[in-house]
Design a protein around this nucleic acid. Structure first.
Lengths: 222, 222
DNA sequence: CCAAAAGTGTTCGTACTACACCCATGC
DNA sequence: GCATGGGTGTAGTACGAACACTTTTGG
């Protein structure tokens, strides 16, 4: 089947940077390409949009295809359109970034034969297309937004401890945070509440467990 | 001439929200549509991308076509892709926003027979497509960014006074600012310098003139 | 009782807010 | 000399940064 237009059209794809916290590292989901171009190289999950779906819908679809997850934080990142970014034809990529809670990610990738894997963001190899550039932009956006929003809480499992949350902040910011200042700041946000339970793990004092007061709420301040 | 693809492609356009300060108002450049759809209605300047140019290049091209200007602040705003936003076919619009210094805008629109006009942002009529939505997003971006960057200086002419600059800030924020606090803050940015001249205009004390230390520099803080 | 991590307050400096009067000009 | 807008400093407050010890647990 062929589609014909009076003037040239680019292809439009959606690529997603899916972050989660895994094994003590901020991680991103990558897929190994099974076909040229860049066959055998790792790339961000993505695909071409359908003409009857919104961009966000396309992003959700890709997210679900790769992870099985249908609840996550999702926001448009940037649109990449360098004429030569895809060697086949002109492809404009609308990039999204998603945050997945770390307890929702075992469900991943019954999809197909391709390799799908989480990579520590500090150990990402060279990627297909301009995907390293997209990933860099997503990391910057995340690092910036963690400073003036409650976005980082979208990476947390249903119940978590404050030391765990602090660790997530430290991973994203790339540096240590003072414990007392951190706890003061988080408490002032009034977006988490104690569950009354404790996390008992090994030879040390148990930490109190918290949950989000509203799982889907993301506040932006300033 | 026809262009044929194996799977359907959307059209991709670039629309620009061009802001300037004019007649005591934050203003946006609009063009009257000469052809359907939305014939006779006002719209943001824009057009379809060429397959051999980058998105930013397309934005520059549109900017120059409408204003004759080739130096301005230009940044990607957001990509709008609702399937029904254009009644003709699927059109995905990559929106940019631009800031034009108020002394560079007499050069505008020798372009063609269409009407082109600056509108006070508070008096914008109903626009074609989803352009009111795009405009709203651009206004929000500008209002947000003025708080944590030196972006507003991109709207200033080569030489300007501090009361003038304050007025621009007040227009964008939509509220009054304390004069002494404002001046203190601007001075702390260290991005303007006195020219030594004065602006002599009418029956009052002349104001000192300033210029940007670096016309093209935009700082983002925090 | 020891190791290891959880938990908890106060002080200091900085940045933002509020606020009122004199100055230079044209008419 | 008066009307109009230009120009200047200080005091109070709120927010983020630095910083050390006690508590609880398992082994």
């Amino acid at each position: 089947m062929a589609y014909t237009y009076n003037y040239p059209h680019p292809a439009v794809s959606v690529d997603i940077v899916i972050f989660t916290i895994r094994d003590d590292a901020l991680s991103v989901l990558l897929v190994e390409r099974g076909l040229p171009p860049f066959q055998g190289e790792w790339a961000l999950p993505g695909g071409f949009i359908r003409l009857d779906e919104s961009l966000k819908h396309a992003a959700w679809r890709e997210l679900k295809e790769e992870t099985g997850v249908n609840a996550a934080y999702l926001e448009q990142l940037y649109t990449f359109g360098h004429p030569k970014r895809d060697p086949r034809e002109r492809v404009i990529s609308v990039a999204y970034f998603a945050l997945l809670p770390s307890d929702k990610l075992e469900i991943r990738a019954a999809s197909d034969a391709r390799n799908v894997a989480w990579f520590d963001t500090r150990e990402v190899p060279q990627l297909a297309f301009d995907h390293n550039k997209i990933l860099r932009k997503a990391e910057h956006r995340l690092a910036a937004k963690i400073e003036y929003s409650t976005i980082a809480l979208q990476l947390m499992p249903d119940r978590f401890t404050l030391p765990h949350l602090q660790h997530v902040y430290e991973l994203i910011r790339g540096g240590p945070i003072d414990k007392r200042n951190f706890r003061k700041r988080i408490r002032a946000l009034k977006v988490i509440e104690p569950t009354g339970e404790e996390s008992r793990s090994g030879a040390r004092r148990p930490a109190k467990l918290y949950r989000l007061t509203d799982r889907n709420r993301v506040d932006v301040f300033k």
